[in-house]
Design a protein around this nucleic acid. Structure first.
Lengths: 351, 351
DNA sequence: CCCGCGTAGTAATTCGAATTATCAGCGCCG
DNA sequence: CGGCGCTGATAATTCGAATTACTACGCGGG
C-alpha cells in the first residue's frame, strides 16, 4: 500500500494505475468525466481505494488562491481564566457561522504581547494576513493599528461599532442608540417624566451611542436631558434624587449595584421610589436566554446585547467582504428584559 | 500599495525591489544572510514593509515548511451552547501554552459534519495538514480516522488517553489509575474494609483505567474487588448495601447524585452510613480552584482532573513532536478533594 | 488520398515559497 | 594572460492538485 514516507499523491496513484496524474485528478473531480473510459475510471478508482488516497488540501487551495481561513484577533486571551468570559458568546456565533460557511478559524495567540496586550502588527508585519480575512474583537482599540489595516485594504470586520478617522470600516455592532431610546420610551409609557442617564466619562462608541439614544428620546418628548457623570455612587444618587429623577438609566451593572446599595441605605425602595435600568447585560457570560440567574442577584431591567448574533453576522459580513470588498456597517437590535427594577413612578414622590 | 486582487507574493515584492524571488525568500528567512548585501537586504525589507507582505501558509507548507500554527480539532463545537462547557478548561491551557511557545491556533470548523459529528477526513481530505501539528480533543474517537492519521505520520497529540491497534499514539491524559488507587488508599486508611466500585458498562479508556486502579488497590489489600454495574440507582444502592459495602466509588457525579437521593429515601446518612467518592470532577466548567460551588450542591469527595494542565502539556508534547517525531505518552496526576461525603465507617454497621 | 474531426488520453503550466544549481563579475596567482 | 576561487545574485526545480494545451489514433467524407 502506502510507502513508508506516509502519504499517497495523485502521481503515485497514477503510476500504479498506469495513467497520468491529470487523469487521476479528473476521476476525482468528475470533471470531463465523459472523456474518460469507464474501464480507465474503474481502474483508477480501484487504486484510489487500495492506497487510501486523500486529497492534500494544500495543493488544492494553493491553486484556489484562498485558504478558507478566517482570522480571529482578540486583544486579550480568548479563553480567560477570569470568571467573566467576555468573548465566549461572540465566539459561539462566530464558530457556528464559520462552520456553516466552510471556513476554519485561526486564533492569533503567537507573537509577544507588549504591555499586556496583543498586537496586530508584530515586528512591522500584519499577521492577520495569514488568513483570508479577519474578525477583530475586544474593548481595546488602537487607532493607529486600525488606520494601518484600513490602508492595507485587508478584509476585516470589527465586532462592535468602531469609527476610524482614516475612512469607513466594516463592523457588526449592537444598536445602543435604538435600545436606549426604547428604554426611555418604555419608562415614559409607565408614566415617568424625569428620566435621567448616569453615564461615564470615557468616550468610547457604546457610551456615545447610549447617550445619543437617550438625548434623541428626550428631545422627542421635549424634556431636557438629565445626564450625570458622577463616579461616586452615593454622591451620584444624591444628585439624581435632588433633580427629581424617578427613573434612571445606568451604564454598567456594577454601578447599578452600587446605586442600589446606596438607595437601600437611604431607606429607598427600588423600583417604587426609583426605577433603574441597566443599559446592557449584567453578565457577559450568560447568554442569551439565561434563566439560571442566581436567586441572590438582582433581576435588573436591562437590554440584552445579541452577542451570539453579532459573532455570526460578523462572519457573514466578512465572507461577503471577501467576494466584494465594500465596507459594510451593521447594527443588530437589542432585546429588552423587563426585570424587577422598573415600575410606575410613585405618585407621592416629592420634589 | 497592495493591489485589489488580494495578497502580495514574494515575486511581486521581488519585482518592486528589482531582485529575484529567491532573494526575497532569503531575506525573509535570514538563511545565507552572509550572501546578501546589506543594501539589497534593506531595499527588500523596505518593500516588504510597504506592501505588507506575509507568507502564504499554503505555499510554505506545500513545500514542507512549518507555519508556527497548531491545529485544534474537536469532535463537537468548541464553544458549545450547552450549559456545561466541556472544552474550555482544556483550551485555556492550550491557548496559554501556545502563546508561550509562539504558536497560533487553528480551529477546524470547516467541513460539514455528518451524523452530528465533525470528521478529520472530510470528503477525502485531511484538513489538519494545514497546521504543523494538531491537538485532538473529544470523547468521541473514530478508530479508522486515527489509524489513517498514524499512517500519514502527521504529528498529533490526543488530550485524554487513547489507544490505537495500529500503533502507539501520543497523548496527554489524567492518571485515573493512580487517582482511583489513591482514593481506595484513603478510604482504607479511614478504616473502610469493604470498598465498592459502581462502574458503567461502557468500556472507554477512563472507565477501564479507574477499574484497573480500583482492582490494583483491592489486590494490594488482599480484598476481593466489589464491582457493580447496575444502572438503576435504587437497585444499585440495594446491591451495594446487601454486600456490606461501607464506602463506594462512583464513576459519574450524576450517578452519585442519584445514589445520594436514594440513600436519603432509605433514611441513610452519607457519609456516616456510607461514604461516597466521585471518580472525577463534578462540573467540567469549574476549574481548578473552583471555590464558587453553589451552596445547595453536594460537596462531593472526589478527585479533580487537571484539565488546564492537560491542555498546556499537550501543546508542549506536540511542539516536541515537531522537532523529534517520537510518540510520547504522558499522564498527569489528579488532586484529591476531601469533601463532605467521606468519613470513618460507622462501627455499629451491621452486615 | 488526405484533410478534418472527435476521442482518450498525456504533457505542460499554474499557484507561492524554499532550495539547489548555476552564472556573471572580479581579484589574484602562477 | 588564462584559469581559479570567491562573492552576490539569478535561474530552475520542488511540493500536490487542477487545468489548459496539445498529441496520437482512428474514422469518415470530399
Amino acid at each position: 500500500m502506502t510507502a513508508g514516507s506516509g502519504r499517497v499523491t495523485q502521481a503515485q496513484v497514477a503510476r500504479l494505475a498506469g495513467v497520468s496524474q491529470a487523469v487521476v485528478s479528473m476521476v476525482l473531480n468528475g470533471s470531463d468525466s465523459l472523456r474518460i473510459t469507464p474501464e480507465t475510471r474503474d481502474r483508477v478508482q480501484q487504486v484510489l481505494r487500495e492506497t487510501g488516497y486523500t486529497v492534500d488540501i494544500m495543493g488544492r487551495r494553493l491553486r484556489g488562491g484562498t485558504n478558507q481561513i478566517l482570522g480571529v484577533f482578540t486583544y486579550e486571551s480568548v479563553f480567560p481564566s477570569g470568571v467573566a468570559d467576555f468573548y465566549r458568546p461572540f465566539l459561539l456565533g462566530i464558530e457556528e457561522e464559520a462552520e456553516e460557511q466552510g471556513f476554519d478559524l485561526l486564533l492569533f495567540t503567537s507573537g509577544g504581547r507588549r504591555d499586556g496586550r496583543r498586537r496586530i502588527y508584530d515586528q512591522g508585519t500584519n499577521r492577520l494576513r495569514i488568513a483570508d480575512g479577519s474578525i477583530l474583537l475586544g474593548r481595546h482599540n488602537d487607532p493607529q493599528e486600525l488606520a494601518q489595516l484600513v490602508e492595507e485594504q485587508f478584509p476585516f470586520v470589527f465586532v462592535g461599532r468602531r469609527e476610524s478617522p482614516t475612512g469607513p470600516i466594516s463592523y457588526v455592532g449592537a444598536d445602543y442608540v435604538a435600545a436606549t431610546r426604547e428604554v426611555h420610551e418604555r419608562l415614559w409609557a409607565l408614566g415617568h417624566r424625569r428620566i435621567g442617564l448616569l453615564s461615564v466619562t470615557e468616550e468610547n462608541e457604546p457610551t456615545l451611542d447610549r447617550r445619543s439614544g437617550y438625548e434623541a428620546a428626550s428631545r422627542k418628548r421635549r424634556r431636557p436631558p438629565l445626564v450625570f457623570l458622577e463616579e461616586d455612587p452615593a454622591s451620584a444618587l444624591r444628585q439624581v434624587l435632588d433633580d427629581g429623577v424617578t427613573a434612571l438609566l445606568v451604564e454598567s451593572s456594577a454601578m447599578a449595584d452600587a446605586i442600589l446599595a446606596c438607595a437601600h441605605d437611604l431607606g429607598l425602595n427600588v423600583p417604587d421610589d426609583l426605577s433603574i435600568v441597566v443599559l446592557g447585560d449584567a453578565d457577559p457570560s450568560q447568554q442569551p436566554h439565561a434563566h439560571a440567574v442566581p436567586s441572590t442577584a438582582t433581576d435588573w431591567s436591562m437590554f440584552r446585547i445579541p452577542r451570539r448574533d453579532m459573532g455570526a453576522h460578523a462572519v457573514r459580513v466578512l465572507v461577503g467582504l471577501l467576494k466584494n470588498p465594500k465596507t459594510r456597517q451593521l447594527l443588530l437590535p437589542c432585546s429588552f428584559h423587563e426585570g424587577a427594577t422598573t415600575a410606575k413612578p410613585s405618585t407621592v414622590h416629592i420634589h
